[in-house]
């Protein structure tokens, strides 16, 4: 099976569409602190700007997250990656893929784009060192054909950062 960096772009189901509209309204009304949703007409792909929290290694650095929603969101997790350049972090690969359990095995429909964003920011904030994951080069090479991070079998080894 071939795959592309954007998940199979099947249109959102009615349920997904409805839920995302509500999430977007909620976001417009009370956006999570440190995040900005870049307004587009595309409900299925959100680009979110994130600013590193003050007092952390990433203070006032700006990054962009790309959130793609599968046809059957929220039964499946959204695909969340950092757009280039991805922050230097022990759990973020240079191709933007993020090793964070809630994006894969631990996703639940009780989560929202907003709660995922907050988790990612807290992952950034708790980092004590700016470096790539140890297996960065091998992983990124494996993803060269445009594999989605959702097809990776992640092994969550560290719950501290």
């Amino acid at each position: 099976m071939t795959s592309t960096s954007s998940p199979s772009r099947k249109a959102l189901s009615k349920i997904a569409c409805n839920r995302l509209q509500k999430e977007l309204v909620e976001w417009q009304v009370s956006p999570p602190a440190g995040f900005k949703h870049k307004v587009t007409d595309n409900l299925q792909r959100w680009v979110v700007e994130v600013v590193g929290a003050p007092g952390t290694l990433y203070a006032s650095e700006t990054y962009q997250l790309q959130v793609d929603f599968p046809e059957h969101y929220p039964m499946e997790a959204p695909q969340v990656i950092f757009l280039h350049p991805a922050p230097l972090h022990p759990h973020i690969y240079s191709n933007g893929h993020i090793c964070l359990d809630i994006l894969y095995d631990s996703w639940s429909p009780a989560m929202t784009v907003s709660s995922v964003c907050i988790s990612i920011l807290s992952m950034l904030s708790s980092s004590t060192v700016k470096q790539r994951p140890a297996d960065n080069d091998r992983y990124v090479k494996n993803c060269r054909n445009g594999r989605s991070p959702k097809e990776t079998r992640w092994w969550f080894h560290d719950d501290k950062v």
């Binding site: 009615k14 349920i15 839920r19 509500k22 999430e23 039964m75 429909p109």
Partner: peptide
């Protein structure tokens, strides 16, 4: 509904 966020399911 805590999953689809709607009160009524779509008519489908």
């Amino acid at each position: 509904c805590g999953i689809c966020y709607a009160h009524c399911l779509p008519v489908d």
